[in-house]
Simulated scan of single mutants.
Amino acid sequence: MRGRPAPLLLVLAIALVVVALLATGVGAYQIPVGQILGSVLHKIGIDTGHLPDHLGERTLWEVRFPRVVLGAVVGASLGCAGALMQGVFGNPLAEPGVIGVSSGAAVGAAAVVVSGVSFLGSWTVVAAAFFGGLIAVAVVYALSRSGGRTEVVTLVLTGVAVNALCGAMIGLLMFYSNDAQLRAITFWNLGSVGSATWGAVAAVAPCAVVGLAVAPFYARRLDLLALGERSARHLGVDVEGMRRVLIVVVALLTSAAVAFSGVIGFVGLVVPHLIRMIAGPGHRTLIAASTLGGAVLLVGADLVARTVAAPAEVPLGVLTALIGAPFFFWLLRKTRARQGGWA
């Protein structure tokens, strides 16, 4: 499929539909695929096929569908954000969780929970998470650049420092929180879409749609940036202006995800890199495929998280870290070997 985006995108779209149907039907209350499709068709005014019973209908529309949709939106946001960050920094190790953007967003969200501020209603947490993530990515961007380029070792170490600082701030907020606030902050640290509601989907979706809509317009400029900053400028790319816009887009995508799902790491690292290995480095395909691939991965991971140890549920962020951390070590070693040492 390398160099041929249409087949890859079609395969990923089909995979997303299949995984979503599995995630919707599998659980403590099993619902056959025929009844799922019948219920969806019934909602849009087409009465055909078998419908689930009353309990099944409620399970679908009040529990399963919101969870699957939120997982898909969060995964798509993180996958797209990872692809953008790797293009902006010119580094395959860049990822919202690795360099502290997710942790910064979690600090903003936790601060709102502990303070009780709600001047924007249900959007207050999203806004606070956005500014927390924006500050984190701005700090990383400023400190990891030297001589007009982003250094690998500085990027990783800055991310470690930002994550450590955010972890300390979250710990301090937990110290001053009550039991309900403590449970909410713990949820963010572990990551989950288990508390998904249509209200959460409605709050996350606009941020995700804006970010996902803006990202493709910068695909060609990111391809030119991959040639080097000087070459990109000679070809008419406003490099710094593009970076500022895309940093805001990354913060928007990541903060929207973190606000309702908590810190879910490595999706934005693993998915774009796998897509790049399959389809090549062109950002037109990479951004779209990473968006779909992130959705597939997170919906599938959530299905595993809630079934592998049923009736208990493995935290989603823990599961993605168990998968993503070894991948990160391999990628770090590969990057170091290719560059002949730390760059």
Score class of each variant (00 low, 15 high):
V11Y: 05
I14Y: 03
A15N: 05
L16Q: 06
V18D: 14
A20I: 02
G38T: 00
H42E: 11
K43H: 14
H50R: 06
H50N: 10
L51D: 13
D53L: 01
L55Y: 15
L60D: 08
W61N: 05
E62I: 07
V63G: 01
R64L: 12
R64D: 15
F65M: 09
P66K: 07
C80F: 14
A81G: 01
M85I: 09
G90C: 04
E95G: 00
P96H: 13
I99S: 00
V101R: 02
S103T: 07
S103C: 02
G104Y: 03
A105H: 12
A106T: 04
S115G: 08
S122L: 04
A127Q: 12
F131T: 08
G132D: 01
A136R: 15
A136Q: 05
V137L: 10
A142W: 12
R145L: 07
S146Q: 12
G147R: 09
R149Q: 15
E151I: 10
G159E: 04
A161L: 11
A168N: 00
L172M: 08
F175H: 02
Q181T: 10
Q181E: 09
L182D: 04
R183E: 03
F187K: 10
A205C: 06
C207F: 09
C207S: 01
V214K: 11
A215I: 07
R221K: 13
D223I: 13
E229G: 08
S231K: 08
V237N: 09
E240C: 11
E240T: 15
M242D: 06
I264C: 13
G265R: 04
L274T: 04
M277R: 12
I278A: 08
G280V: 14
L286G: 00
I287Q: 02
S290W: 14
A295K: 02
V296A: 06
D302V: 06
V304M: 12
A305F: 08
P311I: 04
P311S: 05
P315R: 08
L316T: 07
V318E: 00
L319K: 14
F329I: 14
W330P: 04
W330A: 15
L332I: 09
R338T: 07
Q339L: 05
A343L: 12
